[in-house]
Amino acid sequence: MAIDTKFIGKTWPDLSYDVCKEKIREYAKAIKNQDPHFVDEAFAKKSKYGCIIAPPTFCVVFGGALIEPIFFDNELNLNLMMLVHGEQEFEFFEVVKDRDTITSTAKITDVVNKEKLDVLTVEVLSRNQHGRNVCKGIYTFVVRK
Protein backbone atom coordinates (compact mmCIF):
# COMPACT_ATOMS: atom_id res chain seq x y z
CA MET A 1 0.00 0.00 0.00
CA ALA A 2 1.27 3.47 -0.86
CA ILE A 3 2.46 5.78 1.90
CA ASP A 4 -0.22 8.43 2.36
CA THR A 5 0.95 11.95 1.53
CA LYS A 6 -1.07 13.18 4.52
CA PHE A 7 1.98 12.23 6.63
CA ILE A 8 4.01 15.11 5.17
CA GLY A 9 4.68 17.39 8.14
CA LYS A 10 4.30 14.63 10.75
CA THR A 11 6.75 15.05 13.62
CA TRP A 12 7.94 12.85 16.46
CA PRO A 13 8.84 13.82 20.04
CA ASP A 14 12.25 15.46 20.40
CA LEU A 15 15.08 13.25 21.54
CA SER A 16 17.82 14.40 23.88
CA TYR A 17 21.28 12.82 23.77
CA ASP A 18 24.28 13.34 26.06
CA VAL A 19 27.50 13.12 24.06
CA CYS A 20 30.53 11.55 25.73
CA LYS A 21 34.08 10.95 24.57
CA GLU A 22 33.83 7.18 25.02
CA LYS A 23 30.91 6.95 22.56
CA ILE A 24 32.80 9.22 20.16
CA ARG A 25 35.79 6.88 20.46
CA GLU A 26 33.58 3.85 19.76
CA TYR A 27 32.00 5.49 16.71
CA ALA A 28 35.38 6.69 15.38
CA LYS A 29 36.72 3.15 15.67
CA ALA A 30 33.70 1.81 13.78
CA ILE A 31 34.29 4.12 10.81
CA LYS A 32 38.06 3.48 11.00
CA ASN A 33 38.77 7.12 11.75
CA GLN A 34 41.50 7.67 14.32
CA ASP A 35 41.80 11.44 13.74
CA PRO A 36 43.34 12.76 17.00
CA HIS A 37 40.54 15.37 17.26
CA PHE A 38 38.25 12.42 18.11
CA VAL A 39 40.44 10.06 20.12
CA ASP A 40 43.51 11.82 21.56
CA GLU A 41 42.60 13.89 24.59
CA ALA A 42 45.99 15.64 24.89
CA PHE A 43 45.91 16.63 21.20
CA ALA A 44 42.26 17.68 21.43
CA LYS A 45 42.90 19.93 24.44
CA LYS A 46 45.52 21.83 22.46
CA SER A 47 43.32 22.05 19.33
CA LYS A 48 41.21 25.09 18.51
CA TYR A 49 38.19 23.23 19.94
CA GLY A 50 39.80 22.69 23.36
CA CYS A 51 38.40 19.20 23.87
CA ILE A 52 37.46 15.96 22.09
CA ILE A 53 35.02 16.59 19.22
CA ALA A 54 32.85 14.13 17.32
CA PRO A 55 33.33 13.14 13.67
CA PRO A 56 30.79 15.08 11.57
CA THR A 57 28.81 11.93 10.74
CA PHE A 58 28.46 11.12 14.47
CA CYS A 59 25.16 12.95 13.96
CA VAL A 60 23.72 9.61 12.81
CA VAL A 61 24.06 8.40 16.41
CA PHE A 62 21.93 11.10 18.04
CA GLY A 63 19.86 11.99 14.96
CA GLY A 64 19.54 8.46 13.66
CA ALA A 65 18.03 7.42 16.98
CA LEU A 66 14.95 9.28 15.82
CA ILE A 67 14.65 7.15 12.69
CA GLU A 68 13.74 3.98 14.61
CA PRO A 69 10.45 5.33 16.01
CA ILE A 70 9.56 6.41 12.46
CA PHE A 71 10.29 2.92 11.10
CA PHE A 72 8.09 1.36 13.77
CA ASP A 73 5.34 3.99 13.71
CA ASN A 74 1.98 2.16 13.66
CA GLU A 75 0.19 4.91 11.78
CA LEU A 76 2.84 5.21 9.08
CA ASN A 77 3.06 1.40 8.84
CA LEU A 78 6.17 1.19 6.62
CA ASN A 79 7.00 -2.10 4.93
CA LEU A 80 10.50 -2.46 6.34
CA MET A 81 11.22 -5.61 4.30
CA MET A 82 11.03 -3.46 1.16
CA LEU A 83 12.74 -0.36 2.53
CA VAL A 84 16.21 0.78 1.50
CA HIS A 85 18.20 3.89 2.35
CA GLY A 86 18.22 5.78 -0.94
CA GLU A 87 19.97 9.07 -0.30
CA GLN A 88 21.58 11.01 2.51
CA GLU A 89 22.38 14.64 2.94
CA PHE A 90 24.03 16.41 5.87
CA GLU A 91 24.58 20.04 6.63
CA PHE A 92 27.00 20.68 9.48
CA PHE A 93 26.91 23.86 11.53
CA GLU A 94 28.68 23.91 14.92
CA VAL A 95 30.98 21.00 15.80
CA VAL A 96 29.72 18.50 18.40
CA LYS A 97 31.90 18.32 21.49
CA ASP A 98 32.37 15.89 24.35
CA ARG A 99 29.72 16.61 27.04
CA ASP A 100 27.34 18.41 24.67
CA THR A 101 23.65 17.71 25.09
CA ILE A 102 22.03 17.42 21.69
CA THR A 103 18.30 17.68 21.08
CA SER A 104 16.97 16.40 17.77
CA THR A 105 13.66 16.89 16.02
CA ALA A 106 12.38 14.72 13.16
CA LYS A 107 9.81 15.60 10.54
CA ILE A 108 8.57 13.98 7.35
CA THR A 109 9.21 16.60 4.70
CA ASP A 110 8.10 14.69 1.61
CA VAL A 111 6.27 11.59 0.42
CA VAL A 112 6.31 10.78 -3.29
CA ASN A 113 4.21 7.94 -4.68
CA LYS A 114 5.59 6.37 -7.85
CA GLU A 115 4.34 3.37 -9.79
CA LYS A 116 6.69 0.81 -8.26
CA LEU A 117 7.95 2.59 -5.17
CA ASP A 118 7.36 5.31 -2.62
CA VAL A 119 9.97 7.83 -1.55
CA LEU A 120 9.94 9.05 2.04
CA THR A 121 12.05 12.02 3.11
CA VAL A 122 12.78 12.71 6.78
CA GLU A 123 14.55 15.79 8.06
CA VAL A 124 16.34 15.60 11.41
CA LEU A 125 17.50 18.88 12.92
CA SER A 126 19.86 18.71 15.90
CA ARG A 127 20.72 21.54 18.29
CA ASN A 128 23.18 21.76 21.17
CA GLN A 129 22.59 22.89 24.75
CA HIS A 130 23.21 26.49 23.65
CA GLY A 131 20.27 26.29 21.24
CA ARG A 132 22.56 26.43 18.22
CA ASN A 133 22.16 24.09 15.26
CA VAL A 134 24.82 21.41 14.93
CA CYS A 135 23.49 19.32 12.06
CA LYS A 136 20.62 18.90 9.65
CA GLY A 137 20.29 15.39 8.24
CA ILE A 138 18.00 14.61 5.34
CA TYR A 139 17.31 10.88 5.15
CA THR A 140 15.62 9.59 2.00
CA PHE A 141 14.15 6.10 2.08
CA VAL A 142 12.78 4.13 -0.83
CA VAL A 143 10.03 1.60 -0.19
CA ARG A 144 9.43 -0.79 -3.06
CA LYS A 145 5.83 -1.86 -3.62
Binding site: I31, Y49, P55, E91
Partner: peptide, 26 residues
Protein backbone atom coordinates in the same frame (compact mmCIF):
# COMPACT_ATOMS: atom_id res chain seq x y z
CA UNK B 1 25.47 2.86 3.67
CA UNK B 2 26.16 5.41 6.39
CA UNK B 3 29.36 3.60 7.36
CA UNK B 4 30.59 3.87 3.78
CA UNK B 5 29.56 7.53 3.85
CA UNK B 6 31.60 7.81 7.07
CA UNK B 7 34.62 6.62 5.05
CA UNK B 8 33.87 9.36 2.50
CA UNK B 9 33.65 12.01 5.24
CA UNK B 10 36.97 10.76 6.63
CA UNK B 11 38.62 11.15 3.23
CA UNK B 12 37.55 14.80 3.22
CA UNK B 13 38.41 15.63 6.84
CA UNK B 14 41.79 13.87 6.58
CA UNK B 15 42.44 16.03 3.53
CA UNK B 16 41.38 19.32 5.15
CA UNK B 17 43.05 18.41 8.45
CA UNK B 18 40.20 19.96 10.45
CA UNK B 19 36.92 18.04 10.82
CA UNK B 20 35.07 21.30 11.53
CA UNK B 21 35.69 22.49 7.98
CA UNK B 22 33.27 19.93 6.50
CA UNK B 23 29.98 21.79 6.04
CA UNK B 24 27.90 19.67 3.67
CA UNK B 25 27.91 16.08 2.46
CA UNK B 26 25.43 14.22 0.32
Amino acid sequence: GLCALGFVAKSVTDWTGDPGRLKKLR
